Simulated assay, not measured.
Amino acid sequence: MSLRLEAALDARDVAVSLSLDHGETLAVLGPNGAGKSTVLGMLAGLVRPDRGSATLGDDVLFDLPASWRPPHRRGVALLAQDALLFPHLTVRHNVAFGPRSSGATRSEAGAIADEWLRRTATDAFADRRPAQLSGGQAQRVAIARALAAEPSLLLLDEPLSALDVAVAADVRGMLADVLADRTTVLVTHDALDAYLLADRVAVMHDGRVVEEGPTRRVLERPRHPFTAELSGLTLVRGVRTPDGMRADDGMLLPGEPVDPVEQGAPVLAAVRPSAVRLARPDAGTIAATVTALEPQADLVRVRTDRLDALVPPADVADLRLRVGAHVALGVPPSAVTLYPA
Rank of each mutant, 00 (worst) to 15 (best):
Leu155Ile: 07
Leu155Arg: 08
Leu156Ser: 13
Asp157His: 12
Asp157Pro: 11
Asp157Leu: 09
Pro159Lys: 11
Pro159Tyr: 07
Leu160Asp: 09
Ser161Glu: 13
Leu163Ser: 01
Val165Gln: 14
Ala166Lys: 08
Val167Cys: 08
Ala169Cys: 06
Asp170Arg: 07
Arg172Asn: 01
Arg172Tyr: 05
Arg172Lys: 03
Leu179Ile: 15
Ala180Val: 15
Ala180Leu: 15
Asp181Pro: 13
Thr183Asn: 09
Thr184Cys: 11
Leu186Arg: 07
Val187Glu: 08
Val187Arg: 07
Asp190Cys: 04
Leu192Cys: 08
Leu192Met: 10
Asp193Tyr: 06
Ala194Asn: 02
Ala194Leu: 07
Leu196Trp: 07
Leu196Ile: 05
Leu196Lys: 15
Ala198Gln: 10
Ala198Ile: 06
Val201Phe: 11
Val201Glu: 12
Ala202Ser: 09
Ala202Ile: 10
Val203Ile: 09
Asp206Arg: 15
Gly207Glu: 13
Arg208Ala: 13
Val209Thr: 10
Val210Asn: 08
Val210Gly: 05
Glu211Asp: 03
Gly213Arg: 12
Pro214Gln: 07
Thr215Val: 08
Thr215Leu: 15
Thr215Trp: 11
Arg216Tyr: 12
Arg217Asn: 10
Arg217Met: 15
Arg217Thr: 12
Arg217Cys: 10
Glu220Ala: 13
Arg221Val: 03
Arg221Ser: 09
Arg221Cys: 03
Pro222Asn: 03
Arg223Ile: 12
Arg223Met: 10
Pro225Trp: 05
Pro225Ile: 05
Thr227Gly: 06
Glu229Gln: 13
Ser231Asp: 07
Ser231Cys: 05
Gly232Ser: 01
Gly232His: 04
Leu233Ala: 02
Leu233Gln: 08
Thr234Gln: 07
Gly238His: 03
Val239His: 00
Arg240Glu: 06
Arg240Lys: 04
Thr241Asp: 03
Pro242Trp: 04
Gly244Val: 01
Gly244Gln: 02
Met245Cys: 02
Arg246His: 06
Ala247Gly: 14
Asp249Gln: 11
Met251Thr: 15
Leu252Asp: 12
Leu252Pro: 08
Pro254Ile: 13
Gly255Ser: 07
Pro257Lys: 01
Val258His: 00
Val258Met: 02
Val258Ser: 06
Val258Gly: 01
Asp259Met: 03
Asp259Val: 03
Asp259Trp: 05
Glu262Asp: 15
Glu262Lys: 12
Gln263Lys: 10
Gln263Ile: 14
Gly264Ser: 00
Gly264Ala: 01
Gly264Asn: 09
Pro266Gln: 05
Val267Cys: 01
Val267Asp: 00
Val267Leu: 00
Val267Glu: 00
Leu268Glu: 11
Leu268Phe: 09
Leu268Pro: 06
Ala270Arg: 02
Val271Trp: 00
Arg272Lys: 02
Pro273Cys: 01
Ser274His: 15
Ala275Val: 03
Arg277Ser: 12
Arg277Ile: 14
